[in-house]
Write a protein that binds this DNA or RNA. Structure first.
Ligand SMILES: [Mn+2]
Ligand SMILES: [Mn+2]
Ligand SMILES: [Zn+2]
Ligand SMILES: [Zn+2]
Lengths: 141, 141
DNA sequence: TCCTAATTAAGAATTATTCCTATTTAGTAA
DNA sequence: TTACTAAATAGGAATAATTCTTAATTAGGA
């Protein structure tokens, strides 16, 4: 994703375009595996050695509020972020911190149809995400 | 769930039966909404005013290790625990901290069949959990 | 170019959780 | 029963992630 797009995304959200925000957006788009704030800091610091860590926290919070990024649910004490906004699911590795994206339109359709037919009493479904837990075969975990 | 069962669960896990562990188990079984450590502490303290908060953390960690309870994935900074071990899904309220259990064998079967047929490359599925996000209608949120 | 509300840097403060260690205790075996 | 000992707990210090505070800086508009 190019700088132009970041620029546009920020403006669309009524956010001032600052070097710090551009840097965090770039980190989010380049880092895989649903980065922690720490991961993002490490990436950003390369080009912006003077950025304050509080700014990164604040920036991420702002981005979540504006819907530019999403938080990823985990059972750990560190927050992780997802630069991909479109609906998708996650593969959680049982023995490492690896979390991969999983896209599957067929699955989404199946679930949509299922829950359209079978209502949940007293609950209005807005979104469904799968946590697919298991292990990655082969390559680096 | 009666005290007898707690007793048995602990012994089966090779854990000494202590008043503290009994109390935490009882709290877990009585508190709904996937309690935090704080919730559990508040409950336990009623009958065990002298329990140390560190003991509750340690006890919960031990229970998770032994598979007596599970952690619940959230995007918050407080851990939440689930006394229900059998496979089930969760309804997450968008506007509150409410998380309810959702059991659905038909859904589980559908998913099992789906993923049996459609393999995920390089990933061995062990477990699938749905996060069903939305809002509760009516009653107290 | 100037103005000002928004943003940032820096570091203190907070919160949840973990760690440490002296003391206590559950379970076991004499 | 009693004594023993590994395991568990209490109490409090330490840590780690995150949030808060405030003075200085800056982006974007007039
Ligand atoms: Mn979490
Ligand atoms: Mn924390
Ligand atoms: Zn993702
Ligand atoms: Zn549950």
């Amino acid at each position: 994703m190019k700088k132009e797009n970041h620029n546009i995304n920020l403006k669309n959200s009524n956010l001032k375009v600052t070097p710090q925000r551009m840097a965090v957006l770039e980190a989010l788009n380049n880092l895989k595996n649903h980065p922690t704030t720490e991961n993002i800091k490490e990436y950003v610091v390369k080009n912006h050695p003077n950025i304050a860590v509080g700014t990164i926290y604040k920036t991420l919070e702002t981005f979540v509020e504006k819907g530019l990024v999403k938080k990823v649910k985990t059972e750990k004490d560190v927050m992780r972020y997802d630069a991909i906004i479109e609906n998708h699911h996650h593969l959680y590795c049982e023995d490492s911190e690896r979390i991969e994206d999983f896209f599957d339109d067929e699955l989404n359709n199946m679930l949509e149809i299922y829950f359209k037919k079978k209502k949940i009493p007293n609950f209005k479904v807005k979104d469904i995400k799968l946590q697919i837990i298991g292990t990655f075969k082969g390559n680096k975990s």
